[in-house]
Design a protein around this nucleic acid. Structure first.
Lengths: 151, 151
DNA sequence: GCGGGCATCGTATAAATATGCATGGCTTTG
DNA sequence: CAAAGCCATGCATATTTATACGATGCCCGC
């Protein structure tokens, strides 16, 4: 094996590089390492990046450690509302939210996650979310907050 | 344009899908959407995923929201080791660390700052650090600690 | 020393993802 | 309504990433 400085060392250099400046591709990384006298092929870097748990983002490679969380991380409420909400209908102490087919579960989850004090509970079907509040006044307050999320 | 239900709706379905089960590729995603009567091409999904800020991880697509970084939030010693260490050689009551040319001073400084009780003293040349401990047993203990820093 | 097992790596190529360009529909303006 | 501008999209293809396979080096026991 050629002039090798060891995989450990190369991994350290890779971590340094991606932490200090955006690296847009494995070939980009390969060129930068070459400047540091480390000559390896793209194939090796593909393996290295996997071992180092670095993932590609629009802003370069980043450690995946931060995203180790469960797959249930949902987008914020505002986003869910923009994506799913078709209509809001007030009904005394309740709010009825309409979504496209299949969207209700996701929207309800986002509402729950927002933990509004006004919300007594939610029920989601396929394209409808029912939000229940204590009283009509409570519902008015909640409705304002939700409409504010829509800007 | 075919029977389409709108980009917003498709985006909602994509968020649902990737939140509920791992999706390994854009083609995988394309097939699952087809089951929900959404027919689009991989090219469209590539654009969708970018707009939704979903990034590919070994466990499927995830929201990029949780993109903390700092690969270098490591303790200084671990960082220095990753950056400089090429080799560790034990020698009775001493450890010899090899670095790339010019790296020894920096690595030795990091070792000193870590203040291991085992370390009697260090001597750094250009590409070699000599760490001196009291006895062979002491060196073994230190060596384990240093190797642990490398993961 | 000699073979076996393991790890690393490059080459070639497959697989996955991104993109230039053209099309068709929708909306706005006059 | 026509013309213009804009979006969303598909198709074809370029670019990027992953992998199957074989070669080489190293360590270890005999």
């Amino acid at each position: 094996m050629a002039i090798h400085a060891g995989k450990k060392y190369r991994h350290g250099q890779i971590l340094n590089l991606v932490a200090s400046e955006p690296v847009s591709s494995q070939d980009d990384l390969r060129r930068r390492l070459a400047q540091r006298k480390l000559r390896v092929t793209q194939a090796t870097l593909s393996r290295d990046l996997q071992e180092l748990k670095l993932i590609k983002t629009p802003e370069g490679y980043k450690p995946a450690a931060a995203l180790a969380e469960d797959a249930s991380a949902l987008p914020p409420l505002a986003h869910a509302l923009r994506e799913f909400l078709l209509d809001i209908r007030p009904a005394e102490n309740m709010l009825v939210l309409k979504t496209p087919p299949g969207g209700a579960q996701a929207l309800a989850a986002a509402v729950d996650r927002a933990k509004f004090p006004e919300v007594a509970g939610t029920i989601a079907g396929d394209d409808t979310v029912l939000i229940i509040t204590a009283r009509r006044k409570t519902r008015e307050s909640l409705q304002k907050k939700i409409e504010a999320e829509l800007q």
